[in-house]
């Protein structure tokens, strides 16, 4: 009788210990559903957490591939390719999503007074950033290309798009990645996503709250390996960076980067990089490009207008940020 009671007591204790251990295991994070894919001329890394992570992941991948098929200007089947091919000739019927992205691009072009320019392609072309045949064009070439960058020449009517002059060409590379993140956030909202991190070629969607309460996002060091600092971000946000280190060529010790100033036709060189933290993905993507063009002082003045936060790394590797981000930014070497 006594022996039996002992066994029951021991069994009871084992049960309690098991419960405690199991509760610990449950607290340990379940691994996310992940995927890595190539779209929009870049790499996309996806991490989805929560109960329905696999279903959400499928939808997310589908959306990325869908938008990619509309905006890939190198693919003859894409809307953008067709619009560009028919510039100065006729309007082209495109998918409503393509119209939506172009409208957003025009909105940002107007709001940044042209610093973000979706018709930058002729300039990218003459500097060799389209075919990777890098070169310094002549003044004449630059002047001619500048004449093809008037974004008011984009005519949208219902689901058709027309570029008024022959030779004009859309490039949504500075907005489509961010716009895609907006669509992915919508999917996560609709499907009750718990938490996700999607890095679309350096443009990041942070969704939900991580276990440590804050997301830790590194900002690439524009001149050395690794990161220059870390941003601690709470909740759902979009982060985008534009820098002169991503695509560039060097001639006579001068660096020429792929982000071209649409006002003078030359690669922008005012700063090394700018990071934008925003509540809208397309904003972050396009504004990081625009801020890179206009430089530190003007960008810092514009943050209120667009309701975003920024981190600027100038050409002496000094780091600047607005008041809002001062406590969230931790630099690797304490400089700033």
């Amino acid at each position: 009788m006594n022996k039996k009671r002992n066994i029951v007591t021991i069994a009871g204790w084992i049960f309690v210990v098991c419960l405690i251990i199991f509760s610990f295991i449950n607290k340990a994070e379940k691994p996310p559903a992940t995927a890595e894919l190539y779209a929009m001329d870049t790499i996309v890394n996806i991490k989805i957490y929560g109960d329905n992570k696999e279903t959400i992941l499928k939808e997310v991948i589908k959306k990325i591939e869908e938008i990619n098929s509309y905006v890939d200007s190198f693919s003859p089947n894409s809307d953008i390719y067709k619009i560009n091919k028919n510039s100065g000739i006729k309007n082209v019927t495109v998918h409503p999503e393509t119209v939506a992205i172009i409208e957003k691009a025009m909105e940002l072009a107007h709001n940044t007074n042209g610093a973000f320019n979706p018709l930058i392609t002729p300039l990218s072309q003459i500097w060799g950033f389209r075919d990777k045949n890098y070169r310094i064009p002549s003044e004449e070439e630059i002047k001619d290309a500048l004449n093809l960058t008037n974004y008011n020449d984009i005519v949208i009517s219902k689901n058709t798009v027309f570029l008024k002059k022959e030779g004009e060409a859309l490039d949504l590379g500075g907005i489509a990645k961010g716009y895609t993140l907006d669509c992915l956030k919508e999917i996560l909202d609709k499907m009750d996503g718990e938490r996700a991190l999607i890095n679309n070629g350096g443009n990041i969607l942070l969704y939900g709250t991580p276990p440590g309460k804050q997301w830790k996002i590194g900002i690439k060091n524009p001149r050395e390996d690794g990161i220059i600092g870390t941003l601690n971000i709470e909740g759902t946000k979009f982060i985008s960076t534009s820098g002169d280190y991503e695509r560039f060529f060097t001639k006579d010790n001068k660096r020429y980067c792929h982000l071209i100033n649409p006002f003078n036709g030359y690669p922008a060189d005012k700063i090394f990089s700018v990071t934008v933290v925003s509540d809208k993905g397309y904003y972050g993507d396009a504004l990081s490009t625009a801020f890179f063009i206009i430089g530190k002082n003007e960008a810092l003045q514009d943050v209120k207008k667009f309701d975003v936060d920024i981190v600027v790394i100038d050409s002496d590797l000094n780091v600047f940020c607005g008041e809002e981000l001062k406590d969230s930014l931790i630099l690797e070497n304490g400089k700033g």
Partner: peptide, 23 residues
């Protein structure tokens, strides 16, 4: 390596691990 579609990444749970990098 974008043209080759090959990626090499380091993972692990360290105390001050960053979640991702913006570039």
């Amino acid at each position: 390596c974008l043209p080759n579609r090959i990626s090499i990444s380091i993972t692990g749970e360290e105390k001050n691990e960053i979640d991702s990098i913006t570039y």
